[in-house]
Amino acid sequence: MPWRPMTPQDLGEVQALADRIHVSHPEDPEVLAERQSLYPQGCFVLTEAERAIGYALTHPWRFAEPPPLNRLLGAVPSPATTYYIHDVALLPDARGKGYAAQITDRLVAHAREAGFSNLSLVAVNKSQVFWEKAGFRVIAIPGLGAKLASYGPDAVLMVRDVTSL
């Protein structure tokens, strides 16, 4: 599998990818570095021909409370009630090759092994269809509209039970 654990040495390349892929949702280098340092076992880099072409940042969190974009977390909460997918991002030429499905399967397995009952994420940039195919479903949480709007006009909170196929 071309996905490998992310290290602090990868953060420059990850930042460059994030800046190219998420032009309308920039995040500071400190935010990406903190995610990697708080939960390194949930952070991965996708490489092809020794070149980074994607990344995934995930961590335990509180269900139905997606963290604000471009903000430091401070710590992983205890207890955490969801395994949160902060970002799975691929360059355009890496899409359609099954890489996103590979990392999603790996994240689901990790969540299950770590004892989480679900994974959650905010789908953005027209990614809802992909996440639905991966077993996620949209959930509506009263009072969450303003926070979701900060992620973009098509942002939706999604959840997947780890026991679902």
Score class of each variant (00 low, 15 high):
130 F>Q: 03
16 A>Y: 02
44 F>A: 08
101 A>M: 13
73 L>C: 13
89 A>Y: 01
33 A>H: 02
132 E>F: 04
152 G>M: 05
138 V>Q: 09
136 F>L: 03
91 L>A: 08
50 E>I: 00
135 G>W: 03
134 A>R: 04
103 I>K: 00
25 H>C: 10
4 R>G: 05
29 P>E: 11
49 A>T: 07
131 W>V: 03
56 A>Y: 05
91 L>V: 12
66 P>R: 09
154 D>E: 02
65 E>A: 07
37 S>C: 14
100 A>I: 11
84 Y>T: 00
52 A>W: 02
38 L>M: 13
30 E>L: 08
54 G>D: 01
26 P>K: 04
47 T>E: 15
45 V>Y: 00
47 T>F: 01
117 S>V: 08
128 Q>K: 12
95 R>M: 13
44 F>N: 02
84 Y>V: 01
53 I>T: 07
81 T>A: 10
18 A>I: 00
75 A>T: 13
135 G>V: 04
56 A>I: 07
21 I>G: 06
31 V>M: 10
112 R>D: 13
31 V>G: 09
100 A>T: 06
141 I>V: 15
144 L>D: 03
74 G>K: 01
95 R>Y: 01
49 A>H: 06
36 Q>H: 08
28 D>Y: 07
106 R>P: 01
5 P>T: 07
132 E>T: 04
22 H>I: 02
136 F>C: 00
4 R>Q: 15
99 Y>G: 11
75 A>W: 12
104 T>F: 12
140 A>G: 03
143 G>I: 00
31 V>E: 05
88 V>K: 01
65 E>Y: 11
54 G>E: 00
24 S>F: 03
38 L>A: 08
7 T>W: 00
75 A>N: 13
32 L>A: 08
126 K>N: 15
40 P>F: 12
110 H>G: 07
80 A>P: 03
65 E>C: 11
94 A>Y: 09
100 A>S: 15
96 G>M: 10
81 T>E: 05
131 W>K: 03
6 M>E: 14
33 A>G: 04
140 A>R: 10
75 A>I: 05
8 P>W: 04
48 E>Y: 11
35 R>L: 10
144 L>C: 07
152 G>N: 06
36 Q>L: 15
13 E>L: 12
91 L>N: 08
142 P>F: 04
24 S>D: 14
85 I>E: 01
68 P>L: 05
91 L>D: 04
85 I>R: 01
66 P>Y: 10
80 A>N: 06
81 T>F: 03
34 E>C: 06
36 Q>D: 05
117 S>P: 03
56 A>R: 07
45 V>D: 01
115 G>K: 08
63 F>N: 12
146 A>K: 12
12 G>C: 08
7 T>M: 11
20 R>M: 11
132 E>G: 03
3 W>M: 11
116 F>Y: 13
29 P>F: 01
93 D>E: 15
42 G>E: 02
58 T>W: 00
145 G>K: 10
141 I>W: 04
162 V>D: 02
78 S>C: 13
83 Y>E: 02
104 T>W: 14
46 L>M: 06
79 P>G: 06
142 P>L: 09
36 Q>A: 14
3 W>N: 09
100 A>Q: 12
17 L>Y: 00
139 I>R: 14
142 P>D: 12
148 L>W: 00
111 A>N: 01
81 T>W: 12
37 S>T: 14
116 F>R: 06
112 R>L: 13
